[in-house]
Computed example of a mutant assay.
Amino acid sequence: MTPTPRLLSDPAAADRLPIALFGTSADPPTHGHRALLEGLLQLYPRVATWASDNPLKQHKAPLELRMALLGALVEAIGDPRLSLEQSLSSPWTMETLARARQRWPQCQPVFVIGSDLAAQVPRWRGAAQWLPGCRLAIAPRQGWLLQEEELRRLRQLGAGIEILRLQIPATASSGVRAAPAPEQVPAELHPLLRRHDPYGLLSPGCASPSPSSMP
């Protein structure tokens, strides 16, 4: 059962249109990223995404390439309500939310994470300060079941939680990096990867699948 979101500390927030904020390493973007972005467009009137530079991760590709790949995916989806907003990128969520509120003062930010991050959020910088004024949307990922204790801890910190009923393919950037699998990466990204491919996805030993074989 989807938990009922808590009331936010700002009463006027209920009158503002929500904007889904989804930062991702995009290292590289996969069909899972595409499914999540398209799913968010079914749930929210506007979606903003960006390539993040997570201080807790070691990235395979430089930020500039990951940003370009994510931008190519946004362009391929082709919905004017979805935009690449790289200026939101920050190692700290509280800064991202502050930038989003400044960028769209008429909107209510909805910060989107995967279920694999639910246990980590309470340890993020300033979580007790920014969670009470934030709608936190959690997208279930296969292999990462949400635990009631994780949700309880988030609610204790003031988070208004929305569990998204989306079907996301079992693809992960980490898996693609570990074992190159071009079929897991949207075909629209292949032209860029042919010029810059730190993942070895389109090397001779890892040929790109034909369009007919794409899921």
Results as ranks from 00 to 15, higher is better:
Arg99Met: 14
Arg152Cys: 04
Ala119Trp: 05
Arg46Ser: 05
Gln120Ala: 15
Ala76Arg: 00
Leu69Tyr: 04
Tyr44Arg: 05
Gln147Thr: 10
Val47Gly: 08
Ser115Gln: 07
Asp27Tyr: 06
Arg46Trp: 04
Ala128Cys: 07
Ser52Pro: 03
Cys134Arg: 01
Pro91Lys: 11
Ala12Ser: 15
Arg81Phe: 05
Arg34Tyr: 11
Leu117Cys: 01
Ile77Pro: 00
Gln42His: 06
Ser89Gly: 13
Ala35Ile: 10
His59Tyr: 11
Trp50Ile: 02
Leu8Asn: 04
Arg123Lys: 15
Tyr44Asn: 01
Gln58Pro: 07
Ala127Asn: 03
Met94Ser: 10
Pro11Phe: 09
Arg46Gly: 04
Phe111Thr: 00
Gln147Ala: 15
Trp104Leu: 06
Val112Trp: 02
Ala68Met: 06
Gln58Ile: 12
Arg125Phe: 13
Pro18Ser: 11
Leu97Asp: 00
Ile113Glu: 03
Arg152Tyr: 02
Asp116Tyr: 07
Leu43Lys: 09
Asp15Arg: 11
Leu97Lys: 01
Gln86Phe: 08
Glu150Tyr: 13
Gln142Gly: 09
Gln108Leu: 12
Ala128Asn: 09
Lys60His: 12
Ser90Gln: 12
Leu145Phe: 08
Ala98Cys: 08
Ala68Ile: 00
Met67Asp: 12
Gly133Asp: 10
Arg101Gln: 15
Pro105Asp: 05
Glu150Val: 03
Pro11Cys: 11
Leu63Ser: 05
Cys134Met: 09
Leu21Thr: 08
Pro109Gly: 07
Thr30Ala: 11
Gln129Pro: 01
Val47Ser: 09
Ala48Met: 01
Glu64Gln: 14
Gly71Tyr: 06
Arg81Asp: 00
Thr93Gly: 05
Pro62Trp: 10
Leu69Gly: 02
Lys60Ser: 09
Ala139Gln: 04
Ser89Pro: 00
Leu117Met: 09
Trp50Gln: 00
Glu149Pro: 02
Leu8Ala: 04
Ser89Gln: 12
Leu56Gly: 03
Pro18Val: 02
Trp50Asp: 01
Glu95Tyr: 11
Tyr44Phe: 15
Ser52Val: 09
Leu84Met: 07
Met94Phe: 15
Pro62Ser: 13
Ala51Val: 02
Glu148Asn: 14
Glu85Gly: 02
Thr30Cys: 08
Arg16Gln: 08
Glu149Cys: 13
Gly133Met: 01
Asn54Val: 06
Ala26Lys: 08
Ile77Cys: 03
Ala12Tyr: 07
Asp116Cys: 13
Pro105Asn: 14
Thr24Ile: 10
Glu64Asp: 14
Met94Pro: 03
Pro28Lys: 02
Leu36Asp: 03
Gln102Thr: 09
Thr49Ser: 10
Arg103Met: 09
Pro105Thr: 09
Ser83Ile: 01
Asp27Met: 05
Val74Gly: 00
